[in-house]
Amino acid sequence: MQELFTQEKSIYIQISEMIETDILRGILLEEERVPSTNELAKLYAINPATAAKGVNILVDAGILYKKRGIGMFVSEGAKEMILTNRKNAFYDNFVKAIVDEAEKLGISKEELTKMILEEK
């Protein structure tokens, strides 16, 4: 949870990704309570409305759920959900960029594939 923020992405997206990473790493377990938006705001010195926006992304995706009056909790099967989402986004987030960049540099698809196979 203690990662620093970068300029490249909106803060609230980074908050949601941080929580996801924590779930993947087993720092937050299923059915465990997630820090409240006020606690997140105080921890990172950001506005609670921004923290809330980040948390709501995960609630909408079903990764977190709200228990009224108590707080936010990690859903059952959240870990699998996150992995699936990230796998699906893998093409858009990583592969497309590599293919485009390789094309710009004049690296053929065969050369690219060779590079990938040789990567340990």
Binding site: N38, A41, K42, A45, I46, N47, P48
Partner: peptide, 13 residues
């Protein structure tokens, strides 16, 4: 300055 931002967020919360 960092102390101030924390105090502000905490009081606001």
């Amino acid at each position: 300055r960092e102390d101030f931002y924390r105090m502000l967020i905490e009081e606001h919360a």
